[in-house]
Amino acid sequence: MISSENHHLAPEGSNEKEPVKIILAEDDKDDQELFIDALDEAQVPSEVTTVENGQELLDTLRDQSEPNPDIIFIDVNMPVKGGKKALEEIKSDKELRDIPAVMLSTWSHPADIEDSFDKGADLYVQKPNSFTGFVLLLKKVFLLHWTKALLRPVVSLFFVSEKNISHKD
């Protein structure tokens, strides 16, 4: 099932930024809700479309009636088509390859991280254990993204987890 939610965080009449168009590929409903709630808390004006596996993600991206998203978040472990397989197909498609792709995983295995990097992911994020951690992490991801640090990631900036980000920002 594909759902779409609009989140307009700025008050009416203010200088509202265009909402960020996000597709979240995540099969866990709780993780979908956590992600959307954390975006709200991080005050990232966004329109989130959720899909539940890599095949739904590809179908949504290839739908000509929908504009491409600004960024996609892809859970590594999903049914039907896993995140890394979907990433590989996205990055080999000339129409889709320039969309920034952030991999999400509960694991931080170096081989997984390297494999995602080699397949063209722009960032690999270890899912935080807490809501606060998720909010902080999303703030960092969007700060990195909008300063264009993701255009050509370097490996040292590529892996993000709660352990290697400061709680002071």
Rank of each mutant, 00 (worst) to 15 (best):
V76P: 01
S46M: 02
D40S: 01
V141Y: 09
D40G: 06
G13T: 11
H8L: 01
E52P: 03
L39E: 04
L104Q: 03
L144N: 14
L87C: 07
N68G: 05
S161T: 07
V160I: 10
D75P: 07
V44D: 00
P128F: 14
V20H: 01
K127W: 05
I99Y: 05
G133H: 13
H109C: 03
D70H: 09
G82F: 00
L123R: 13
N53S: 10
P128Q: 11
D122H: 10
G82M: 04
L104S: 12
A42R: 01
E26I: 13
N53I: 03
A25M: 04
P19F: 02
S92Y: 06
S105R: 07
N164V: 00
E12H: 12
A111P: 00
N129R: 09
G13S: 12
L144I: 05
H109L: 05
L39K: 05
N164D: 01
F117L: 09
D28H: 09
Q43H: 14
E56C: 02
D31V: 06
K84M: 14
I71C: 02
G120F: 11
L123F: 00
D118N: 13
H7E: 00
Q64R: 15
V125K: 05
D27F: 08
V155C: 01
V141S: 01
V51N: 01
E114F: 08
N53E: 00
S108V: 04
T50K: 12
I22G: 03
D122G: 11
K21C: 01
V44W: 02
E16L: 03
E5L: 05
D59P: 12
V160Q: 00
D93V: 15
V44Q: 02
L61C: 07
M78S: 08
D27N: 13
M103W: 04
D112R: 08
G82T: 10
L24I: 09
D59M: 05
Q55M: 09
N164I: 05
K140N: 11
E95L: 10
A101L: 08
I22L: 00
H145K: 06
P100Y: 04
K85T: 13
E95K: 13
D37S: 12
V48I: 14
G13W: 05
E16N: 15
V48L: 00
H167G: 12
A10T: 08
A121L: 04
I74G: 09
K140H: 12
N68K: 07
I72D: 02
V102M: 03
S116W: 08
K139T: 13
W107H: 04
V141A: 04
G120W: 13
Q126C: 13
F73W: 15
R62I: 13
D169H: 08
D75M: 05
S116N: 09
E89A: 10
I113D: 10
L136V: 15
P45L: 03
I72R: 11
S3I: 07
S3V: 08
D31C: 06
M78R: 04
I74P: 04
N6E: 06
L157Q: 14
D63Y: 08
D70E: 10
D93K: 14
Q43F: 15
E47A: 09
A42L: 12
F158W: 01
L150Y: 10
P100L: 12
K127G: 09
F134M: 15
K17W: 01
D31R: 03
W146R: 13
A10D: 13
K81D: 03
I22C: 00
V20C: 01
P153N: 01
